[in-house]
Amino acid sequence: MSGTINEIQDEIIEEFAILEGDAEMTNFYIIELGQKLPPLAEKHKVEENTIKGCQSKVWLITAPEGERMTFEADSNSAITKGLVSLLVRIFDHQKASDIVDADLYFIDKIGMNRFIGTQRSNGFAAMIKQIKLLALVYRDSKEIVKTNATDK
């Protein structure tokens, strides 16, 4: 996984274009993506790591990497795991400030809302919100550290 957020989004758009909007193929492709996502260790599958607002269980953890962040995720639903894998692929190892500012145009471009439906779209939006919140908190904490350093 490498490239900027927008480069990865463009890759995803290209991959989905091959599926030609076929609902079944798209579902199966999303499941395959999820199957490739390494499973989260059981110890991380706890309440504090769950994303609220999803029908299924989604666990997301993050770790700092300098000014960048890493993400790992898992779900008890194969399709949801595939969906969250897209976000991990886009945001893993990105700068916190870039994550906060990211415009996720790939969602509309691949017509995601059409094939995952309203309930899942709401869940997907909750995942994005959670990632951006984590990034915002991390970015601001880094800025506070920086400011403090400058003050000295």
Partner: peptide, 21 residues
């Protein structure tokens, strides 16, 4: 091993309407 919601979504892709939950 299959989440009920996924069954519903995958059947919908084949034009089959069921309910899950």
């Amino acid at each position: 091993g299959v989440f009920h919601f996924d069954i519903g979504q995958m059947l919908d892709a084949r034009g089959i309407a069921i309910r899950t939950g």
